[in-house]
């Protein structure tokens, strides 16, 4: 198995993808290359022999040899693009992008690491109940750009919802207030189609966090190409298509259910008593989507934040400051009460 290094035509140093230029850039001589100008230097071309050595002592780690300095690269189970820990040389492990692991699509990073950090700080400042010391914690060096494995599902959904719709009106007659409610049996049957519902294909990425940074803008989607991985971390999927479909199906069902509920005649209130939605014609495409992962430790507990590498949308496990919440609630309650009473007295509404 081989490790790919994309190198500079001018000086042969390794090159990596530059977000702003949308080109590959050499970090040493600043030469820039378009995608079709890139020369791939595989281990076969170089003198060094690269062997995948499945070390018996540490079976969970696969071992590769860095093409730049010859050091052994230790990778975690699913890493597909990584850095040499000695010379920071970006390496792409080609085998982990081949065969069943060959992605169909990718969306390139659009947000730089610096922008991602700024986005995060702006975002965390707006989290009202986050502890103040957490907001100001500047040491977020463990932020990393990652091409996350995703399954993009196209599917059709069809089914029905049924329940009761209610319309009410009230009026006054003599000494009585009368409320009349009309009840209707409501049934909606319909179908719809969905395009590229994303489900992350990695056990180490929490589904709810990944849902929080959606949606990606699919107009920038490209056919997968290994060159983009250079300079980033990437993982191959460890949740297969079938398992991911089980996450996607309830989402598609929910989409159609709410579309059906909102269709046809509208009611003042509606309650759904039963529904059945079938998902069919499911097609999955494997894709690499850009995400920045940030882990902050607060009071001994890890808090993970995700930043969409394309749109900058942020979502995460913000720590909750209970004391702040209680104090704020009490202050707000008393203030509102005082303002209401004073207002009522001044306006004479009582």
């Amino acid at each position: 198995m081989s490790v790919n290094v994309y190198s500079c035509k001018t000086c042969a140093a390794p090159i990596s993808y530059d977000i702003k230029q949308e080109k590959w850039k050499c970090q040493y001589c600043n030469s820039e290359f378009a995608k079709d100008e890139i020369v791939e230097k595989t281990s076969n071309e170089g003198e060094m022999e690269v062997v995948e050595d499945l070390n018996a002592k540490i079976p969970e780690l696969d071992e590769y040899r860095c093409n730049a300095c010859g050091a052994k690269i230790l990778t975690e189970g699913n890493a597909a693009a990584t850095f040499c820990i000695y010379c920071r040389n970006p390496s792409v492990i080609k085998s982990r992008f081949s065969g069943e692991f060959h992605p169909r699509y990718l969306i390139p990073f659009k947000v730089t690491l610096k922008e991602a950090k700024e986005t995060y700080f702006k975002w965390i400042k707006k989290r009202f109940f986050a502890p103040d010391e957490f907001k100001t914690a500047r040491e977020i060096d463990n932020i990393r750009g990652l091409y996350a494995p995703y399954w993009l599902f196209d599917c059709r959904a069809s089914g029905y919802v049924e329940g009761e719709g209610r319309n009410s009106k009230s009026w006054r007659s003599g000494d009585y207030n009368i409320t009349e409610t009309q009840h209707y049996y409501v049934k909606r049957v319909g179908s719809s189609a969905y395009d590229k519902i994303p489900v992350d294909g990695s056990k180490s990425l929490a589904d709810d966090l990944m849902e929080g940074i959606e949606p990606y803008n699919y107009s920038a989607i490209k056919d997968f190409s290994l060159e983009y991985m250079s300079g980033y971390l990437a993982e191959k999927y460890d949740v297969n298509e079938k398992l991911a479909a089980r996450v996607m199906e309830p989402r598609a069902q929910k989409f159609l259910r709410s579309t059906l509920e909102a269709s046809g005649q509208r009611y003042q209130s509606m309650s759904i008593s039963s529904s059945s939605i079938n998902i069919n014609s499911v097609k999955a495409a494997y894709a690499m989507l850009p995400v920045y992962v940030l882990t902050n430790v607060y009071q001994g507990k890890k808090h993970t934040f995700m930043i969409n590498g394309q749109t900058g949308k942020t979502y995460g496990e913000t720590p909750f400051d209970k004391r702040k919440c209680v104090l704020f609630s009490a202050a707000l309650f008393l203030t509102t009460w005082f303002v209401t009473v004073t207002g009522a007295v001044i306006l004479g509404i009582y």
Binding site: R188, G190, D195, S263
Partner: peptide
């Protein structure tokens, strides 16, 4: 968000 534009088809509707 992921619905194909125009793909929704209300087959029947009962009130």
């Amino acid at each position: 968000t992921y619905a194909v534009p125009g793909a929704f088809n209300l087959i029947s509707s009962e009130d």
